[in-house]
Design a protein around this nucleic acid. Structure first.
Lengths: 226, 226
DNA sequence: CTCACTAGCGGACTGTGGTCCGGATAGGCG
DNA sequence: CGCCTATCCGGACCACAGTCCGCTAGTGAG
């Protein structure tokens, strides 16, 4: 009917939406700081997450509907979407804690995943850790990614992985286009592909790990070669 | 109401459905032959395809709804689903002709895409041709693939690509796990990723092509090395 | 040509994701 | 303590994919 603006769940955008330029102090809140969430809202968020977690654990992520989560949490459907934007957002929120820990591991954790090991070894470890991650969170990852096509690639989680892989490639003496190669390597670790390989192709975890190691060794030069 | 069999659009399954074992001659029709489609049904199929094609050309695949196609073709919605199974099936049908030609090219066409060139060159050509394919059919490919997660990997189109790449890898003297590598290479050519690289990352076609070429050269040994 | 059989048809119906807006309320402020 | 308003709530509502089933008409047999 009017401007078909995207329905982003990001709070900042809502905040800046239709503000008439009154005497409101022109302050852009620091990114990352959340302007005081009302107590009932916070309570609802945790209630919803708990309900969702329970339902996912019981029935599997793929059959959990927003209606059921809302009903089970004792809130209206609008509340779910207010907090999480869309279904994928809710799933991502469920993954958030593990995801955060995972990122922490490869950014600041111990070698070979974290800093200290040569970049090629870190890449190998990264892939193995990602396979493990997918093994554990499989269905949830699938549910979190299956939104608009290409949405997962635009999201901050992917951006973090991408930045990490690019950094490792640059630390190695890889001569080619690092961004391109990073996307290719991450494509090899996408949950959709990996779950297909595990379930349909019946590849063992070992086969995946050795395939990945081979791949990285073929593509990424040893640090000493620089 | 009865056996909840999957709603596959494949004719063979329908054919074998609830046949009582009367005196019907026990004949398995050759695969690929379609048991006589009624004239009105065939007419409807082409009408639907024409309507869909027109709508996709006019508005883009992503906003074309089944209702609109049905209405625009002057048939009921049930008819669409009878013929094509689901939305992705319709999109795939729209792609079918080009897809067929593409496959023909790399199976029986002239070198370097077809047989005659060394496998590594054929792989490079395959990627370039795939990039071109995605360039032209982008949105339609996206619409055709965005179904249940992993469905695209289970489909015959993917299987054909996969078989082709595996064959090329085996023809080269690649020593590792060909199936794993084939999936990785195809992941690098998935329309989702490629459209992301083109549109979000603003990579040029040339950058993609050279990235791909680099990738293949790093991974696949030259034939003479065998 | 006629009949019977069944493939095919169509559109009402269901389930799900996502939107909207009138009403309720937390919590800062006087 | 009571008011005021930004914030939040809830569920009615919409759009769309996909299902179902009673009816129609094409087709092959006789």
């Amino acid at each position: 009917m009017l401007t078909q603006m995207d329905h982003s769940p990001v709070d900042i955008e809502n905040r800046l939406k239709g503000v008439p330029e009154t005497a409101k102090p022109f302050v852009l809140p620091m990114l990352g700081t959340v302007r005081h969430e009302r107590a009932d809202a916070a309570r609802n968020r945790t209630t919803i997450l708990a309900a969702a977690e329970q339902l996912v654990a019981a029935d599997g992520a793929s059959v959990v509907t927003m209606d059921r989560v809302a009903h089970c949490a004792g809130v209206g459907k609008g509340t779910l979407f207010r907090h999480f934007g869309d279904r994928c957002g809710l799933m991502r929120a469920l993954l958030d804690e593990r995801e955060r820990a995972f990122q922490e591991e490869f950014i600041r954790g111990p070698a070979p995943l974290g800093p200290g090991a040569p970049p090629r070894e870190r890449l190998v470890a990264f892939g193995e850790r990602m396979y493990e991650h997918i093994e554990i969170q499989g269905d949830l990852l699938l549910a979190a990614e299956n939104g608009a096509p290409g949405e997962r690639l635009r999201h901050s989680v992917y951006a973090a992985y991408r930045a990490h892989v690019i950094a490792l490639l640059e630390q190695s003496s890889y001569a080619g286009a690092t961004a391109y190669l990073a996307d290719v390597l991450l494509a090899a670790l996408s949950s959709e592909l990996v779950l297909f390989q595990r379930r349909e192709q019946a590849l063992s975890r070992l086969q995946l790990a050795s395939g990945w190691s081979e791949l990285v060794h073929a593509l990424v030069p040893d640090e000493r070669a620089r």
